[in-house]
Design a protein around this nucleic acid. Structure first.
Lengths: 205, 205
DNA sequence: TTTGGCCTCTTTCCAGCGTCAAGATATGGA
DNA sequence: TCCATATCTTGACGCTGGAAAGAGGCCAAA
């Protein structure tokens, strides 16, 4: 409903409208510039209306984070599926999907991974980043089928740390601040390649 | 002055007191729970007093970040200096210092590396994380003396990404959430070892 | 079709926030 | 000693998140 039409007393789908305006606002102003009242304003609704859909501002932020993880999962899965090659190539693919999502949604990504500093608690049933860990662990386990559980865990740590650290530093401008997008991608791929190579080497030892 | 003594109209060293109370408050409440008025309250001063020492709240936060980078630099330097071994061992040492600082100051560390999302701008002369990059680059260059500038840069990226990513994920509870401190350190050292080994391997090819 | 209950949204209010302006007070050099 | 200046307080403004109370529209049961 309501594309271009006048809306009456009821909004129609305020919850989704708040999620959409909230997400845009988060990217525009950063987490500290995020306000519930501005979200409501952009949804053309009174400042108290959101309370009927989200118990608090943190509740809306938690929903954004939840959807962010779902999308991140999708981005990684899609990129890995595009690759027909071996497990090592798929490991790189997961990293590419991870970085692509982060680059497209920098503020949301940073919020997803600084929930502690921002005191954002997910709901009970919400699994957070567990899906991402599972995606990676599956590929690492495939590469290290003969290794001990300990080695497999350590290589999964290492793989996640490398790809997470690289894009986190890029988002802060600490890596490749002046690089072209093209050059930056090359640097990212180089980091992912070094990571995958290390995992593969362990599998052969 | 003033340990246990009554203080008069003037505080004596309000600037340092605000930095101290601010840092504690940041760790206690997280970035979104940080308020200038609470800093002032803890320094036993009126809510408007900080304005004479910091132009704004962000100005105080920027000062905390600035000092954070200085301390991080020190922690890394000290840990690397403790090590008498080869460059590879010192590279691991830098990572140990990095992680130790982050673990001791989680909220500050996360703020230092999410300035973008938090819209914290450093002052003109402030070099931010450049010192950290230099520390790492020096060791990596030593290991890869014969390599091209491109390879050296990519290995520096890789080294920083791995150690940053690992501790960032630990702070979020994504890695080693249930581990003992001892087990967690072992996992961190394993990640650093895998990283250093990769850099060394490149130097031999 | 009418009616009554419920969900959605608005209005109003509160305390706390960052920041500014104006006034009070102490300090230290002339 | 005196006064300019730096430091701190008080009070005010508009903003925020949240609670409370009432108005408006929807829908199912009668």
């Amino acid at each position: 409903m309501s594309v271009g039409k006048q809306r009456g007393y009821h909004h129609g789908d305020l919850r989704e409208a708040l999620v959409a305006s909230g997400r845009k606002l988060l990217e525009e102003k950063g987490i500290r510039g995020f306000t519930l009242r501005e979200c409501a304003r952009r949804a053309e609704v009174s400042h108290a209306a959101p309370a009927h859909h989200f118990a608090s501002m943190d509740d809306l932020l938690a929903e954004l984070v939840r959807r962010g993880f779902a999308e991140l999962n999708l981005a990684m899965t899609a990129e890995a599926a595009r690759i027909e090659g071996e497990a090592a190539a798929r490991l790189v693919g997961l990293g590419v999907g991870y970085m692509a999502f982060a680059a497209a949604n920098p503020a949301l990504f940073q919020l997803m991974f600084t929930r502690e500093a921002n005191r954002i608690d997910l709901k009970e049933g919400d699994e957070g980043a567990a899906g991402i860990r599972r995606l990676q662990a599956a590929v690492v386990d495939e590469l290290l089928a003969d290794a001990s559980a300990d080695v497999r865990q350590r290589m999964a740590d290492f793989a996640w740390a490398t790809m997470h650290g690289f894009i986190a530093l890029v988002l802060e401008g600490e890596i490749g601040g002046r690089d072209s997008s093209r050059a930056l991608k090359a640097r990212g791929l180089a980091a992912l390649a070094a990571m995958a190579e290390t995992v593969v080497r362990v599998s052969r030892s």
